[in-house]
Nucleic acid binder design. Structure first.
Lengths: 124, 124
DNA sequence: TGGCGGTATGATAAATTCATCATTCAATAG
DNA sequence: CTATTGAATGATGAATTTATCATACCGCCA
């Protein structure tokens, strides 16, 4: 089983890039955010929340598992997922902060280059 | 120019996935870590540090620029890069912490499943 | 103009994504 | 016990995206 950690001695930046690769898909980010609150969520719930097909969801869950970002737990006939570490939540939080920063700056730049006041009512 | 922010109103998790996509390559992680200390680094330095070909490096720098993770500044005949926001450094830091956590846990699991003591000398 | 430092382009190779189908596992009906 | 249903996973291949490499290009300064 490819676990992305077998070569624990390989360059750190390669391992780190792999971590980001695991996060680099909208569906997977969405799933992680659904798990953010903390309590386990069943695959059924994830499917109904996202509207994805079961097999499609399972594929992404498998990627998240491989990257050790989530853990699965079987309860009777259903499988529940949760974040593997609280640090995963931290990572998403920091990403959100960075994104907010980027968007804000970009917006300011747009506004200043277009010379369109952002908050006051345009005269024309 | 595709800037990954044009549709600022599109789903947040898609924008966030894009951010991670920008980080999801060993070379780009490596470059960001070289920029981590804070002072601008010239492309020449980045090239000699990594051993990459100029065009190859430039491509990755272009990706990082598109994702607003770095900014370039021209000084005479050379171009210097630095992190676009301190939050980028935060992101890398959190990623490192998470990775350490994952590696530690995985190692413990390996040790316990193989029943090989980690620190004491094996008897056979 | 020539040369150095970077950048953009385009073709090919490789990895991801996505849809479809088959399989496994648990619970329950017959 | 066996068949069946619901829940989830796994496997295959086509389509799309991304990475890689070589090459051509641009801007600055001597």
């Amino acid at each position: 089983m490819e676990t992305f950690l077998s070569g624990a001695d390989r360059p750190l930046y390669e391992v780190k890039a792999n971590l980001f690769k695991g996060l680099a898909h909208p569906v997977r980010v969405r799933v992680l955010e659904l798990l953010l609150p903390g309590d386990p969520v069943s695959v059924s719930e994830l499917i109904s929340e996202t509207g994805l097909e079961a097999s499609h969801m399972s594929q992404h869950l498998s990627v998240l598992r491989k990257h050790h970002l989530v853990v699965a737990e079987r309860r009777a006939s259903q499988v529940f997922y949760r974040l593997a570490y609280p640090e995963v939540a931290d990572l998403l939080r920091v990403a959100r902060i960075l994104l907010a920063q980027v968007l804000e700056t970009t917006h300011e730049q747009l506004v200043s280059t277009m010379r369109l006041p952002a908050l006051s009512a345009p005269s024309a």
